[in-house]
């Protein structure tokens, strides 16, 4: 464990807590894409298949349970909780996210480190996570007003993978044979997808204005 990875995990945890806070306290999911949340459930479900078979550390297992539990409960809230579901704008959140999964599955079957069930599922979860934010970013372009909590949620979610990139660089230089091109490239693509969001988020913060992505 290094500080970059710890910072990444804490930033990821913060993003999930901000979203849960928003949904649980103000009972609103306005501006939040259910499609992205459903993709994240699949990302974690396919990433943590080994949660009961391989034990790395208490921290690792605890964080896996937190990410699994929070992503499932966010989807549950947005789908089945009456008050929250009412604030979900279904008309705008129309990204065909199931079509995102197909290329990820195909790519995982083609490009992976080992052709085993676990490894292919794990690779699939990496590819899917890289593009999981797309429905949310599309929804953001459509809904003009972005409330602070949603903006913070996306900012933290994008930032965590950026810390992971620093972690991969650190591990590359400190651990012999630590080379994982698949993880690195999908992590880089994932972070780059946030580039324009980060730009407008920074501008809104600098000019102290409401965050607005151009149409």
């Amino acid at each position: 464990m290094n500080i970059f990875r710890l910072a990444g995990d804490m930033t990821h945890l913060a993003s999930v807590l901000v979203l849960l806070l928003k949904i649980h306290t103000i009972k609103s999911c306005a501006g939040v894409s259910l499609k992205t949340q459903e993709l994240y459930v699949i990302v974690f479900a396919t990433r943590y298949l080994d949660i009961f078979t391989s034990f790395v550390s208490i921290y690792n297992s605890l964080m896996k349970l937190i990410f699994l539990g929070s992503s499932f409960s966010i989807v549950w809230y947005m789908r089945y909780h009456k008050a929250v579901h009412r604030t979900y704008d279904r008309e705008q959140d129309t990204f065909r996210h199931w079509f995102l999964m197909l290329p990820c599955i195909l790519l995982a079957l083609l490009i992976h480190e080992k052709f085993t069930f676990f490894e292919v599922m794990w690779t699939f979860s990496l590819y899917l996570e890289a593009v999981a934010i797309l429905p949310q970013l599309v929804l953001l372009q459509r809904t003009r007003n972005i409330d602070n909590l949603t903006g913070q949620y996306i900012f933290l979610l994008g930032g965590y993978r950026g810390f992971y990139i620093l972690n991969w660089i650190y591990r590359y230089f400190t651990e012999p044979h630590y080379v994982h091109w698949i993880t690195w490239i999908s992590g880089l693509v994932q972070t780059l997808l946030y580039a324009d969001f980060f730009y407008y988020y920074f501008l809104s913060w600098k000019n102290n204005k409401k965050l607005q992505l151009p149409a």
């Binding site: 990821h12 990433r47 391989s54 790395v56 690792n60 896996k64 794990w122 972690n167």
Partner: peptide
Amino acid sequence: VAPDDVKDEL
């Protein structure tokens, strides 16, 4: 140390 193939990252 976790052997190489064990995923130690989240």
